[in-house]
Simulated assay, not measured.
Amino acid sequence: MSHVLVTGAATGIGLASALRLLQDGHQVTATYHGTPLPPELVDCASVCVDITDPASIHSAIKEAESVSGPVEVLVANAGLTRDTLLARMDDERFEEMLSTNLTSAFRLTKAVLPSMMRARRGRLIYISSIVGFTGSPGQTNYAASKAGLVGFARSVARELGSRNITANVILPGAIATKLLTDAGESRLEQIESQVPLGRVGRPDEVGAVVQFLASEGASYINGALIAVDGGLGMGL
């Protein structure tokens, strides 16, 4: 089994992914910042990291690898939202989103890459969003950051495939996390009405795809985009 680093593992998709990976016997290091890890992750190693800070990322990866060995699977799960209409959006709000949701993936990948290249083996799993393709009013910053992950991951897949390092992207749709419930009941009902399955997804349904991509069964999947959205973005 592999040493897996899961960022943002305190809640939602990150938590569900960490639990799924533990079930498979992986050695999981869960990262957190602000929100402490829940009791369910008592069997995980853990590190606190500010993913907007290069020094914090470097320190966290060094600590994780000193405890559990080289990171063999990275699950990059950043999901900050700061919604507002474009006409009201300032530079700070846009740049904060890129730093948290996109630049952090670049920095995390760079940090774990040396050990993966030495081992000639690795899995890079990026949590994007279907919004990166469909767009969403008030989310130009979020959509741009999540769309950027796709180009980044596919370029990584082409660069590193010859070293047996894969890079894939998961595109969650409307998932029952705090980000969605904070939108309010009326917005939730509106979203549900647009989903062909007629409901929002569960974090565990995204975690199941993370679990698969980290498994031996996914060894020939590279540069893929996998939507977990109930059909919301079908045809994209």
Rank of each mutant, 00 (worst) to 15 (best):
G34A: 12
V47H: 03
G25A: 02
Y32K: 01
P38Y: 14
L41C: 03
Y32F: 13
T31K: 07
D24M: 08
L37K: 09
L19N: 04
L41R: 02
V42G: 07
V42R: 10
P39S: 14
L37F: 11
Y32M: 06
G12Y: 13
L15D: 13
P36R: 09
T29K: 06
T31H: 08
E40M: 04
V47N: 03
L19M: 13
P36N: 10
S46G: 05
G25C: 03
T35S: 09
T11V: 02
R20G: 11
P36M: 10
S46D: 05
P36V: 05
A30K: 01
G25P: 02
G34K: 11
L37R: 09
D43A: 04
C48P: 08
G25Y: 06
D43N: 04
G25N: 03
E40H: 05
V42M: 08
G12W: 15
R20M: 13
A18S: 11
E40D: 15
P38T: 02
P39I: 12
C44D: 07
T11G: 00
A30V: 13
A16L: 11
L19Q: 10
V42Y: 08
V28A: 04
E40R: 01
S46R: 06
C44P: 00
Q27G: 06
H26S: 02
T35E: 11
G34N: 14
D24N: 06
Q27P: 04
C44I: 00
Y32P: 05
I13Y: 14
S46W: 06
V47C: 04
H26P: 00
L37W: 11
